[in-house]
């Protein structure tokens, strides 16, 4: 379960974007029983707020 879900990058991407369908969410919730999958998605969730959309503030993220 986890390994199949983990490879569906766009589905997981939609979850990070908050644009997941009910079906997407159910798949992810079921996948959370797999510890590898859980770690992968939790690290991605944390990282997803760290994007630097403005090149001018580049120095501040060193």
């Amino acid at each position: 379960m986890g390994n199949n879900t983990i490879c569906n990058f766009e589905l997981l991407g939609r979850v990070l974007d908050g644009r997941a369908t009910d079906r997407d969410r159910k798949i992810v919730l079921r996948g959370l029983t797999d510890s590898v999958f859980e770690e992968c998605i939790l690290v991605a969730l944390k990282a997803s707020v760290l994007y630097n959309e403005n090149g001018k503030v580049y120095e501040t993220v060193q």
């Binding site: 490879c7 939609r14 644009r19 992968c40 991605a44 990282a47």
Partner: peptide
């Protein structure tokens, strides 16, 4: 999905 999220998931894996 957004490119940011797509890249995030691929990088995490």
């Amino acid at each position: 999905c957004s490119l940011n999220s797509y890249i995030t998931i691929i990088a995490s894996r």
